[in-house]
Every structure is written in C-alpha cells, then in structure tokens.
Amino acid sequence: MASPIEQFQIKPIIPAINFTNSSLFMVGAVAVIVGGFMLATRKRAVVPGRGQSIAEILHDFVAGTLTDATGREGMKFFPLVFSLFMFVFTANLLGMIPGFFTVTSHIIVTFALAMLVIGTVVVYGLVKHGVHFFGLFVPSGVPSWLLPFIIVIEVISFLSRPISLSLRLFANMLAGHIALKVFGGFVVALLGAGGALTILAPLPLIMAVALMALEFLVAALQAYVFTVLTCIYLNDALHPGH
C-alpha cells in the first residue's frame, strides 16, 4: 500500500523547464481563477446571475476583510490580497479532489507566499514612512526601563510572522491530507484482511467522509486566515506605531 506521504511527492512532467505536477496545479489554479472570473462576469449584468453573484461575493468579502483591517487606504493592496486569497483558496480546494496535488502542502510554497506578504510590508513601510516605520517595534506608553525588552520581543514577533503564517497553512493542508490518506488506507487494509475484519471496513470509511467535510472547512478557513493575517500585517505597513 502507498505511503500516506507519497501524495506530496513532486513528480517531473517536463524536466527541461522544471515543470512538475506542482507546477501543473499552480497553472491549473490560475486558469481556474481567471477563467472562472471571466466566465462569471462575461455578461456584466446589473442584476447578477449565479456565477456573477459568487464572483461579487468573493470580491466584497475580501474587500471587506481588507478595509476592516486597514481602512480605505488599504484598498491599494487589494489586487495582491485578492490574488493571494484566490490562489490559496483555489489551490486548497483543488487539492481536495482525489488524486489531485495540493500546491499549498509544500512549505516552500507557503513560505514564499508569506515572504511576499512580509516583503511587501517591509518595502512599502520603509518607502512610505522611512525610519518612522521602525516605530512599529516601539510601543507607546511603555516605561523606558522596559523598552529594550519590549523592542526585542517586538522584533522577534515580527520576524516570526512569516514562519507562523507559512507553517500554519502548510501544516494544516499536510496533516489533513495525511489523515484522509491514513483512514482511506485503513479501509483498504481491512477489506484486504478478510474475515471479521472486512465487516469493520465501513467504520474508517465513515471517518474518512467526516474528515473530508472537515478538510473542506479547513481548506476554506485557512485561506481566510492567511488573508486576514495578510491584511493585519499590511495595516502595520500603512499605520506603523501602535
């Protein structure tokens, strides 16, 4: 029987350009997102149909999340935040289809996305606010003798952001898919064992179905969490100083 982590293996498709199954699903996710939105909004209807409603709900949802965290001026980051949300969301959901590869189950991908967010925060913060950006690490209203410790803590907390941001998404996707595979494996193993054990085979199957529902929730939720945290970090770039 296949190992539960075999599903995460990178398999080359066109080795000459490093095109792998991972690349294929990245391209697939982009195609699904852009194609889906173009198809849904092709009528530009004032009274939206089903597809256009979904597109508008996604738009308003992400825009609401962004403006809640950063205010109106945060909307300049909307294309980035919306692209991030849609990419993670679509990659997570595509991964739920049996046999499909989950792009976000690789730490390098989630870490790169997290670094994109933190990089944007740092670059924008420095360009916009200059040295004032470092006010981020100096909370106001703290006694001066406490300040050195607070600054150290704030710096560590800032540096750990990309790690926690990427690890959260990566670990959730990885663990969910392993759990699904393990319970699926139990079904096969019990069926293969014969005798009384065969009768028990539906039990892990029920578990796998329940987990599947949970994983769909996790897939959507983690995309949302990633987006919310992105918005909160972007708020630091827009309004440094506590």
């Binding site: 990178i10 490093n18 095109f19 792998t20 991972s22 690349s23 990245m26 391209v27 996710a29 982009v30 997102i33 852009v34 294309p79 980035l80 919306f82 692209s83 849609m86 990419f87 792009v103 690789h106 390098i108 991908v109 790169a112 996305l113 994109l116």
Partner: peptide
C-alpha cells in the same frame, strides 16, 4: 527551485491578470 520558479511565474501571471 522548481516550485519557486513556477510559483513566481504563475503568481505573477495571476496578479497581472487580476489587477
């Protein structure tokens, strides 16, 4: 390396088409 390469390509395309 390969994953990063394709992530950069696909995300750049996605961002461009989105914006």
């Amino acid at each position: 390396g390969g994953q990063l390469l394709w992530l950069v390509i696909t995300f750049a395309v996605l961002y461009t088409l989105m914006s």
